[in-house]
Design a binder for these strands. Sequence first.
DNA 1: ACGGGGATGGGCT
DNA 2: GCCCATCCCCGTA
Length: 203
Amino acid sequence: MKKLERSFYLQDTITTARELLGKYLVHETGSGRRAGIIVETEAYTGVEDKACHAYEWKRTPRNEVMYGIGGTAYIYFIYGMYYCFNVVTGAEDNPCAVLIRALEPVEGLDAMAQARLGKAYEELDSSRKISLTNGPGKLCGALGITKSQNGLDLCGDELYICSGPAVPISIKATPRVNIGYAGEFTDKPWRFYLENNKYVSKK
DNA sequence: ACGGGGATGGGCT
DNA sequence: GCCCATCCCCGTA
């Protein structure tokens, strides 16, 4: 299990979104490591993509880090209560990102259960175990990801992604979730997930 | 099973 | 003052 290098993140956004499936997302917190396998992603392909925060070169304090180099963490606050974690892709000044939508928990299960529900992992029924990380806001809660990690370099030591086991995987593609405002981009099949994985957020 | 609606507050016009 | 790349609960069946 090797930390992904810069070159991985410099690939085009859709390739990166597909290749992130099966990789390990790791957060080294003050109280231990929390990690999970990435099972669902969405590609936001840049200034032409009406669903992308940087559509038409929009540049504000919130999305500023999207203009950085591939391999930067882009984390934003949404709906008054949740965070979403994204991986910036491609060269600088080419603002694209991949939203991580779901994880399969691997390490730090008790810390995740504590963070989300205030309980020990083994106290949870199976549906509560699944709902620990089967959505973008949920996985941030479980891993302890907040705005304070916005802009971190994923080639660093706090928040990073590792290669997974070389296992055959089957990838499904569908339209992205909750972007009905994006006109002709609404139906682009840029959401990817591991088929048959029970931690995927929907269908 | 499925759907409707409320929570909740930063970000931006 | 409206929007939002979400989540969870509480109806109906």
